[in-house]
Write a protein that binds this DNA or RNA. Structure first.
Lengths: 203, 203, 203, 203
DNA sequence: CATGAATGAGCTTTCATTCAT
DNA sequence: CATGAATGAAAGCTCATTCAT
């Protein structure tokens, strides 16, 4: 594929991601995407078999980035609390690296998509949760999480809080939601309520 | 309006709510609604100016129920912890009273709706949050919430956890999410992590 | 259905039949039909679920007429040779009664139609042939057909000759093909070559 | 043109013929042909100006073969009845020599083709008929055909029977239609009904 | 000799909506 | 109170074809 082609495909990709994020999958027509990119319809179909395929490729790309960042920020750090920090600040990194794409990633959960794609998304989110849960178990064994903690609800609470921030930014247009300051504040909130710090441990 | 008319309108209303909840606002056509209700299209337009109006009336109805239950379950109880319990179990009550409608109420946040309607929804949700925040402030004054608590994040955490359960039920089809048992478990989780119980207070 | 509606539906029906006959099913677009009828596209879809359904209804109508005429002209007459005459002149009657439709009826065999429809047509034509074959058997028992005749080939020859005339008229635009005179000439040709007339019988 | 090029062109040719025969001219897209051949679209356009030209070249090729066989099987034999046999068994020879192409040749009459091409086909078929008619005239002079025979209808009957067999094979998928046995049976049928054999002559 | 990339024109179908009755 | 009939606008998608390389 020539450079120009690569460029066209990628422009379709990013433009569509933004439009989908803004208006939802169904509300964005192929024509709209093409107008925004500055191409004609058959050109889009030259690169993407159909609308659903376009969405699927975007979701896969989005998963890949998400996984990459999760590995880098959550799995790589040795210390449990660093992992937790990584979980929170991973979002920040996603935004900085793929600004146009993060909104898509954040919104995809929220809009009407073909049932088949939806089921795949659900499976993926469930797998992420399992992954995170086993991380909490490790934390528990290491003494960072109370021995009698309700891990299911802990996981749920952390996950949903994090998502809430993203929703606040992109649905409620609250730009303060994902600032460094706010993420830091969330980290402190979690530390205080859910995790046993070294201080408390030594005490 | 005669009784029969009232009935037709209400049948449209409930049927549309279910369909919207199942497939999303955009994916449900006027034709589908009419077929499900057993009327012709102009009849629907006799009762509802247009599709958006139908949605708006449904949202307003849904708000009214929500507010009613909030008042009954959260504002009415005197004791702070009873209010918190009410907040959690209010969902249960909604489901039991308006089973067809609760799914709509839960899903409305998740699907593509006209921008105008979306903005109204956002305003409404924000107002609910403020209302809830002031409730937490009261709790703080009464000693149920730690004096140095980060109320913003507390509110956010509680709200998003509650929503998470709803999503788990209706998006992930996890029927255990909103059982009495699970709600009770959430209440205990909250008590332990966020609120000062009488026991602790007396200590 | 009001008279006006009946009229619109029937206008679509006849216009489409003519267009299909002229250009083939695939080559005629919904837009073309609508323009010819003087309606907008959704109106056509109001009366016919989709293009294939339109074709199917036309085929069924065409079968019904064909059957009707077959019964009237072939099955009703008592004398064998009158039946044969009826077979030939039935075409003439079809044309006179449903002039716009006969061309469709004649051409349908010749153009690309959805596989499903094609199979149905084939079954139908086969059933017609069986019907005709049993008629020849009767003729044989009555002495009109030679005892050692190859009935399969006789049937095939008669059928294909008849179709040939139709093709000559509508594909080759040979207007003399289906004139009374020419049909009469064919009847005499058949009499001479295939059937035992009373004259010969008495001899 | 190099051998490889000749090969590519010929591969396009044969593949397209099969596809056209299977699905009809309109239903086969350039893309489909290219995929089946394993080339890209501009390559096809390098060899054939456009889709219609591709069809025309195929028709001409098909005519050439047809003519060749006609000359070999019908014109070459001296005896009239051998000519008639040749007419019938020429089809068999076509199939054996150009199996992929015969189906195309047989089907071309049946599907929607550009008007211009259609007219050319019609002219060609008419010329074939004239050729065949003059053959029958010769037969008449030689005493093989009755002096008072209706030559027009005789020609028509023979031609259409022959075509009928082909249709039975390729449209109705009746594999017995063009077997040696069946062709022989048709020959006997013709002999009995239409031609004066030496036996009868001597009588 | 072959191709990647692009396009204008067209397709069938569905949508929300209206109006006369 | 309800409906049959009609429509403008738009949807997703495919076609034959071309041009620069």
């Amino acid at each position: 594929m020539s450079t120009q082609a690569e460029d066209t495909k990628s422009r379709i990709f990013l433009t569509a991601a933004e439009l989908f994020a803004d208006y939802g999958f169904d509300k964005v027509s192929i024509r709209q995407i093409c107008e925004a990119v500055g191409i004609r319809k058959p050109t889009l179909y030259y690169y993407f078999k159909d609308k659903e395929t376009l969405l699927l490729e975007m979701i896969n790309f989005s998963k890949k980035i998400g996984d990459q960042i999760y590995e880098e920020q959550v799995e790589k750090p040795k210390d449990f609390l660093d992992k937790i920090r990584g979980l929170i600040f991973g979002r920040k990194i996603f935004i900085e690296k793929y600004p146009q794409f993060f909104r898509f990633h954040a919104m995809i959960h929220l809009f009407a998509i073909p049932e088949k794609v939806k089921q795949e998304m659900i499976q993926y989110v469930l797998s992420l949760m399992l992954r995170f849960r086993s991380l909490l178990e490790t934390g528990q064994k290491q003494g960072y999480v109370a021995a009698d903690e309700d891990l299911d609800f802990l996981m749920m609470t952390l996950t949903s809080s994090l998502n809430h921030l993203t929703i606040r930014k992109f649905v409620f247009h609250d730009d303060s939601a994902l600032t460094d300051e706010n993420l830091e504040r969330m980290y402190r909130f979690w530390l205080k309520h859910f995790f046993v710090t070294q201080d408390k441990q030594t005490t």
